[in-house]
Nucleic acid binder design. Structure first.
Lengths: 234, 234
DNA sequence: ACAAAAGTGTTTTTTGTACACCCATGG
DNA sequence: CCATGGGTGTACAAAAAACACTTTTGT
């Protein structure tokens, strides 16, 4: 949108629109959150979600992708709108509404150097410190959403490497649901959907015997979706 | 927020924030949508959702309630955020993001005179005309949300009168799911939740025999929620 | 007496849950 | 040879789905 674009709504109020990212990761059997030290006043230096103001000429979703790439070096990350936070006095800096988005990233992929350069850190979800503004609320809301959503859509796979084992997948779901699951029933349920491709390789990093690696079958999943199928885990 | 409030973010872009309401009703066995003729340029006079710009000193949700009350005379209506629409060029008037909210109202309650005065009309969901901007997309998204949500939360009752019959409730769910349901199984399922209070009165408007009226039991529902219970219909 | 919608139970099928042992391997 | 996590099957319980007839009453 160029500066000379006609403004039809001149008598109305304008405000800032920001986007904040709740970045989830999964490492060592635990759900993690990526946060960093706020770089602008007010509350400069306090722990905060990663965010940015939305520019006049960019989509809100683009702004979120931009900031995520800036901090992690990753592109094409799973990201979805959580909700807006629009209370009038939520930001003491000036009237600003924020569109929160949650992202699921594969912790093995991100650019560690870049992340460190931005003063960002991974926190265990159970040990998240106080964050600025309403960011703790955003995190709580995002976790709720993740719990609900992971059940009916195969988004959990976004947190795992391309190739993963069934026990790893189970660990992930146990971390999300905060509940232990029966290994036999879990395996049965997951495999019954026919959206996992079993590979020849094994991952031996967590047992002598090794566990077979699987890949998520996006194509088959898309086809099944067309025919009115419903994914569900647990 | 007063005019002299300090602005910490002065070098950033400001834009308009609007809210648009997808107003659902249920009448004569059909899902309905309330829309009206747009009052401002551009596209003045075209069919549009009801919306408003958010003012500097009001919450986004307050803005939505304000506009809903203006048009229907109703207060304390069920309303929930759908999602934001933040594509940069979505509004040819000027950069404006919209936070869409969907509302469920009891069609018997609204102020007909007020609605008519604003040039608003109820359309059958299956016959919604072309709307301005991305409003048709909002409607489609809201309908999807309603379908998913009605299954796991008792929000359908917001569309019915305080007192309703089981066949009416079934009609409503059939309209939402766009699918016929078995009357015996439906009744069994609904009553099994123990959140309906059976009244002595009958509604004879749709049969000679008449059907017993019920009320939704909000208190019991809240109690059940506490104890980890999950509502589900169909 | 009949048309039209309300109300009621049982059987079958599907899905979820609980549960215990053998397997493969590296050290 | 043994410790460790990987992998498998069955029986029982619960929930969902299919299905048909009787009741009520205004006209």
């Amino acid at each position: 949108m160029k500066a000379e674009t006609k403004d039809f709504y001149i008598e109305q109020d304008k405000m800032y629109v920001a986007t904040d990212c709740i970045i989830f990761g999964f490492d060592a059997g635990k759900l993690k959150l990526l946060i960093f030290k706020r770089r602008v006043e007010p509350q400069k230096g306090a722990w905060s979600l990663i965010g940015s103001f939305v520019k006049l000429e960019e989509n809100v979703s683009e702004a979120a992708q931009r900031v995520l790439t800036e901090i992690t070096g990753l592109k094409n990350v799973f990201m979805e709108e959580l909700k807006s936070y629009g209370v009038a006095d939520r930001d003491p800096g000036y009237r600003c509404i924020s569109i929160a988005q949650y992202a699921l990233i594969r912790v093995e992929d991100y650019d560690r150097e870049l992340v460190e350069k931005h003063g960002a850190h991974w926190y265990d979800m159970k040990e998240v410190p106080n964050l600025v503004l309403d960011h703790n609320q955003m995190v709580a809301d995002a976790l709720e959403r993740l719990k609900r959503k992971a059940r009916y859509q195969p988004i959990g796979f976004e947190l795992l490497p391309e190739k993963f084992t069934i026990p790893q997948l189970q660990q992930l779901y146990e971390a999300i649901y905060q509940k232990e699951l029966d290994a036999r029933n879990f395996r049965k349920k997951v495999l019954s959907h026919n959206v996992l491709i079993k590979l020849e390789e094994k991952d031996k990093s967590s047992s002598r015997r090794g566990a077979f690696l699987y890949k998520f079958d996006h194509d088959t999943y898309q086809q099944l979706l067309q025919s009115g199928y419903n994914f569900e885990i647990s």
